[in-house]
Design a protein around this nucleic acid. Structure first.
Lengths: 247, 247
DNA sequence: GTCTGACTTTGATGCAGATCAAGGAGGTCC
DNA sequence: GGACCTCCTTGATCTGCATCAAAGTCAGAC
């Protein structure tokens, strides 16, 4: 099973990498078969817009691989990212015609799309899909509220540390690390990080440099980050709770 | 039917003021009867904490009347409001033991609470409750994302105008106004507004004064606001879309 | 009536982060 | 090789909001 197969739709849900985390996680075989009938895959190269805010949207779907962002833009060009979509995250809203946000692929992106009308019908008829979607939406709401604290009350340094902590935690969760160090790639440009954090790209750059000089992180190239002391990073982020890092 | 009756639980759902907007909106008579068995009312005086973040929470529920807030607090005391709960809004999360945020009554508050365990059982068995909760959660997620733009990218003046616009729109929606002016009460102290907007209370006070001097709003006392030109207010808020104001 | 405390307003000053500006690193195309 | 991107870093300066401080307003208790 390679990406090429995925892109051509030659994939059964049973083999899907996000089978147990996406909106279909709870589906039984019959339900899965039904989903399979209304699904199709779409891929987007890094940088491409998936959909513009306000556009008619005739599908909903899941991120299979890669990373996408949701952003809002004001008339004068100020931009705020309001969501970071990782594999298994859901895109679109049942019952709504138009997209509410710009959706952009920040890396090469593969999406599993469902035609909207039949998906909405399924939502009503099969409870497992709606239940799972509720669970995922509640998680997203928690994440959004967490981010409101970051945007509203944290300093620039804390904001950067918070973002790095999210990425580091995700990386740590992906697999047992051979060393205690967490190593990960920044999937966002400095500008995209600024849009996420409500900062300017210059401030992002400066604060990353500062965290490097203060030995909180080690940069290997511009996009690879090594975190030796995760608790230290959390401290810098202003988080009290120590998240569940393995090791 | 008076508040006193409500507080004592002497109320059938049929007469409930939030019957058609709350989590029970879609329920049929039989479902309603079942909800009625597991519900009870609680009232809180203005200023009282409904629940502390981290506390065990053995109920979920709806705001029947009054206003409550969700806030997050950092170790050093920085606070960010992450939700404003108006009548019909839902409190708590099925499937979670502990409260994630502090919930505080900012006005006298009446809540319709459901015992958590039986409510969770109902979520699984009756689709209408889960469907309605999904819809409400998606709306809340949209509101949270809207607020992320406010927190991350708007100036202090725009933040205040945005909050006033939300309150004004809600008031306008409540009933046909006899005049074109929208008149409403601020349900929050300056400090609570600051917590909502990621500002200090001094900045809130100054910006409200500035909007008054610039004739965007008229203050009648400290807590009553008159908005003569709603479009002007939206302009000040940096919103392009003109929301659906009647008249 | 006065006292008290919660809430609000206004002024003076300081600083974190924005803005303006320049240059560096690394990639791709020719 | 050089030209030309895009992305990133760093420096100098400016400014919007925070901070520190003091006084005003109003309702309720007595």
């Amino acid at each position: 099973m390679v990406a090429h197969d995925l892109a051509l739709g030659r994939q059964s849900c049973g083999d899907c990498p996000i089978r147990h985390r996406a909106v279909c996680a709870r589906c039984e075989d019959a339900e899965l078969a039904r989903l399979e009938e209304i699904k199709y895959y779409r891929s987007f190269p890094a940088g491409q817009t998936v959909i513009w805010s306000g556009d008619q949207m005739d599908f909903v779907g899941s991120v299979v691989s890669g990373i996408a962002t949701l952003t809002q833009t004001m008339e004068d060009g100020r931009r705020q990212m309001v969501g970071l979509l990782l594999p298994s995250d859901f895109v679109g809203r049942p019952g709504r015609m138009a997209a509410a946000y710009d959706v952009t692929a920040t890396t090469d992106l593969l999406m599993c799309c469902f035609r909207k009308k039949p998906f909405e019908a399924m939502m009503i008829e099969t409870p497992h899909v709606a239940q799972r979607l509720l669970e995922m939406t509640l998680d997203e709401l928690d994440a959004a509220r967490e981010w409101m604290l970051v945007l509203g009350r944290k300093t620039a340094r804390e904001k950067i540390a918070s973002l790095l902590a999210i990425l580091a935690r995700r990386q740590a969760a992906l697999g047992a690390q051979q060393s205690r160090d967490i190593l990960f790639e920044l999937p966002l440009t400095r500008e995209a990080m600024a849009d996420y954090l409500g900062l300017t790209l210059e401030t992002v750059s400066r604060q990353i440099s500062a965290l490097r000089q203060d030995r909180v992180i080690v940069l290997e190239g511009k996009r690879h980050v090594r975190v030796a002391d995760f608790d230290r990073l959390l401290e810098e982020a202003g988080d009290d709770s120590d998240g569940g890092v393995p090791g």
